[in-house]
Simulated scan of single mutants.
Amino acid sequence: MPTQDVTKDDTLEDFAVREITLEGESKRVFVSGEGPAVIVMTEMPGISPHVARFARWVREAGFTVYMPSLFGRDGALPDADEGAAVFRRACVSAEFRAFGAGVTAPVTIWLRSLARLAHQECGGPGVGAIGMCFTGNFALSMTLEPSVLAPVLSQPSLPLDVPGGLDISDEDLKAVRKRLDKDNLTVLGYRFAGDQVCRAERFVALSQALGDRFDGRTLPDSAANPSAPPFFAKHVPFPHSVVTAHLIDEAGQPTLKARDEIIGFFGERLGVG
């Protein structure tokens, strides 16, 4: 798999930049690769070099990556102040509903349409989707779209004010559970044990709602990369980003194993590898 310098801004020049209009809304989407589609949703504070590195790993494993720009400067490695400003804007955006449990984020309607479009364009049995941090639970809501077969929740952090809450309505959650049972699907989840944003209560809530359809995996804090980018070093001073900012890119590391498990999950569900 390719190596990428994650200590400076990423030009993203190996991705095609598309302006995609769905549900009356236009968003920039970075697309690259061949094979079945995987929607990679960025963590806070945007499509960082670490998020792009993960997207490239998925691409090199035989998938077409669709990486929508949802907030922040695309490809940037922002300093702590810029990252905090992006976070504050996203928190008050009606698209995301950062606070309060039991409500489905409106942006997931657009993301479900993106999954449908990606499946039409790429073919295969269906689509994979991974949300991270701020977008973590979005992959759960996206399973309401029939083409989504492989949902992954990496450190799902919303709602910010209810540790045991889920940012999905009760009605949608029931529909998700019904769909998982009907199509024999599993939702894969990852977090660090000491994550203060995606706490253990969230995985308990997911297990209670989805039963054995939720496969939640918790990594020890010792597995997290202690050398975090500026935004994380100041504002997220604890293990958090499993396959991006806190991943240790060395053989035998638990975070690298988690990356391989996720890519393997996509492959198993989408018929790659």
Score class of each variant (00 low, 15 high):
A150N: 01
V6R: 13
D9F: 05
L180H: 08
F30M: 06
F87P: 00
Q120N: 07
T143H: 04
F238R: 07
F54I: 01
P2I: 11
H246Q: 13
L247C: 15
A85C: 03
F96A: 09
A175R: 15
D14H: 05
M67S: 02
G267N: 06
V187Q: 05
E25H: 08
F71P: 06
E34A: 14
M142N: 03
D170P: 15
I109H: 14
G24M: 09
D172P: 04
R116L: 00
W57V: 07
P239G: 03
G216Q: 06
R53W: 09
S32I: 00
L219R: 08
R259Y: 12
A80G: 09
D14R: 10
P68C: 10
G62V: 08
E201H: 13
G189C: 06
E261Q: 14
S93T: 02
V176K: 03
P156N: 09
H235L: 03
Q155S: 15
F15Q: 11
L70N: 04
T3R: 12
R202Q: 10
T108E: 06
P106C: 13
L111A: 02
R202I: 00
E201Q: 15
A200I: 10
R97Q: 15
P68L: 08
P36M: 10
V236W: 10
G35Q: 11
D5L: 02
Y66C: 03
H235K: 03
A105V: 07
G216K: 08
P146I: 00
A139G: 12
L185D: 01
V65F: 02
I130G: 02
W110G: 06
V103M: 10
A94G: 15
A16I: 01
D14V: 02
A101V: 05
Q196T: 07
C122W: 05
S93K: 03
S147M: 09
M44Q: 14
M41H: 04
K8P: 00
R213I: 03
E171M: 09
D249G: 02
W110L: 13
Q208P: 00
I130F: 04
P78L: 01
V107R: 08
A80L: 07
D172H: 14
R59I: 04
F30K: 01
R53F: 13
A55S: 13
P49G: 14
S147G: 08
P229V: 04
A223T: 01
A175C: 12
